[in-house]
């Protein structure tokens, strides 16, 4: 703000004033339903999850084994070459202890979330997932973890077929 300006535009609405009915509102709720196709690469990836397996794509040009898998390499901008099965273990690249839900409401018990670098994929190739069976205060960057799968008959080809990752036994 310039020191030449003496009047600052904008009218704050205090919560108490709002609750006292000082301002007029109109409310509206939008319900938008979507059904997303999983795409060529992720459909195959999800089929693997049903079988308790993680699959990646390999690019022959840069040599990277990519997870999440994609049918094209964004760096070389060419089609990737083949499916490669990677392991369902990895290490914690980074983690957070979350006390909030996605609408910013608070959780009574926190959830531990993590980027997990997957063994068998190229260095630094991680996926987002949860950590479980671990005291949040004892998680460390570099910790070795393994996937905990839902029982086979409960898997439906979704990222949640992995319940969470836990410290490797």
């Amino acid at each position: 703000m310039s020191s030449r300006i003496r009047k600052y535009p904008g009218t704050e609405m205090d919560l108490k004033e709002i609750e006292a009915g000082k301002f007029l509102f109109s409310s509206y709720e939008t319900v938008l339903r979507y059904s997303f196709t999983s795409g060529v690469a992720i459909s195959r990836f999800l089929e693997g999850l049903k079988e308790g397996q993680l699959w990646a794509r390999e690019c022959d040009k840069c040599g990277r084994i990519l997870i999440p898998p994609r049918m094209y390499c964004e760096e070389d901008f060419r089609s990737t070459d083949r499916w490669v099965r990677v392991r369902d273990t990895g290490k914690v690249n980074t983690y957070s202890i979350s006390y909030v839900n996605n609408d910013a409401s608070r959780r009574r018990t926190p959830v531990v979330v993590s980027v997990i670098e997957i063994d068998g994929a190229s260095k630094g190739m991680g996926i987002l997932h949860l950590l479980g069976e671990v005291d949040p205060r004892k998680v460390t960057v570099g910790m070795k973890v393994e996937a905990v799968w839902k029982p086979k008959k409960e898997r439906r080809g979704a990222i949640t077929d992995i319940v969470y990752f836990r410290p490797r036994r």
Partner: peptide
């Protein structure tokens, strides 16, 4: 990502 990240409750 609607398939790989949203189901985890990401914010």
């Amino acid at each position: 990502d609607h398939t790989l990240e949203r189901p985890l409750g990401v914010t």
